[in-house]
Design a protein around this nucleic acid. Structure first.
Lengths: 82, 82
DNA sequence: AGGTCTATATATAAGGG
DNA sequence: TCCCTTATATATAGACC
């Protein structure tokens, strides 16, 4: 997107914040779109290094989604995708 | 993207699943990119209507991020963006 | 469910206000 | 920080395998 960049930590704090602001809104939009189009509940949380809750999104209340997650059997929780 | 569409629930289940699969991988990629570029921890959870945990992503363990969320004071949790 | 292709829509880096 | 512009990179709908 735009000029080609390598995905790595942006060291300049100003540029990093600008990029975060832009990408956050796009990510949020995409999360909303998939939630609506595909009829799924989506939760999105971002924590800054200072442990500040930057943003989240869900169709319903975040606590309901968290509760559903917490109640899942462990073997279904552990499908990591990192 | 591709042919223009309106964002609403895709009624055809086959098309809905195909779209979910495509958009899920893109969303996951974007979440990973913002996590790296902007040095934030990101959590992404999607629940299907059948309450199945479809996917999630985080830099660290999801439980650590959830725990941080749970420990936040309530007034900081309630910055809804829906 | 996964993979490929193509045309088109969207996202976004860089820069300026 | 937010709002624009422009050039370019990426995402994706539809079709097919």
């Amino acid at each position: 997107m735009g000029r080609k960049i390598e995905i790595k930590k942006i060291e300049d704090i100003i540029k990093r914040q600008v990029t975060f602001s832009k990408r956050r809104s796009s990510l949020l939009k995409k999360a909303k779109e998939i939630a609506i189009s595909c009829d799924v509940d989506v939760l999105l949380v971002a924590f800054s290094p200072a442990n500040r809750l930057s943003k989240f999104c869900s169709q319903n209340r975040i606590e309901d989604i968290l509760q559903r997650y917490i109640e899942l059997p462990i073997e279904r929780k552990l499908t990591y995708v990192n």
